[in-house]
């Protein structure tokens, strides 16, 4: 249930203290080509392995040179309800409205070792654009 990589991560095995940690995962998409050829489409999904049991705290998206609507879908198989963030990025660097776990966005937990996939789709073909996604994950560990 913890995913294929849980046993490969040793990060929780030796800790013995209570400490809430908000750590982040940065995922960069560069040269985002929308509409995509098979090659381009293969570049528009990235997978990250979750290093610790955590909840999804915040998600921030920014980018530049895009001038189109971008949609990021974040999923982890059946472990979470997929999160979709969408918005328009202009030609200048700017940020989308940040995602938070609130009463309207249910609190979701990710398990250590699970794989989170981030898929980007766009409405504009701009080879020099980029989209940067920051996942802020909150981990609360217990005394062993």
């Amino acid at each position: 249930m913890n995913g294929a990589f849980s046993s490969q991560l040793t990060s929780l095995q030796s800790e013995n203290a209570t400490l809430p940690v908000c750590y982040r995962l940065n995922v960069d998409f560069v040269n985002c080509v929308g509409g995509g050829t098979p090659t381009a489409a293969a570049f528009l999904t990235k997978n990250v392995v979750i290093p610790d049991d955590c909840i999804i705290h915040e998600i921030a998206v920014c980018g530049g040179e895009h001038n189109g609507v971008v949609t990021i879908t974040i999923d982890s198989g059946a472990l979470i309800t997929p999160i979709t963030i969408t918005g328009t990025l202009g030609t200048n660097f700017q940020k989308l409205t940040r995602y938070y776990s609130t009463t309207t966005n249910p609190l979701q937990m990710l398990l250590k070792g699970s794989v989170l996939s981030l898929t980007l789709s766009t409405t504009n073909t701009v080879a020099t654009s980029n989209v940067q996604i920051t996942l802020m994950l909150l981990s609360q560990r217990r005394i062993a």
Partner: peptide
């Protein structure tokens, strides 16, 4: 209190070769 505290963090995940 000296303790082994795990601090997981990650280098940004970015494509390391894209043409």
């Amino acid at each position: 209190c000296y303790s082994t505290v795990v601090l997981p963090f990650c280098l940004g995940v970015t494509a390391i070769s894209e043409a």
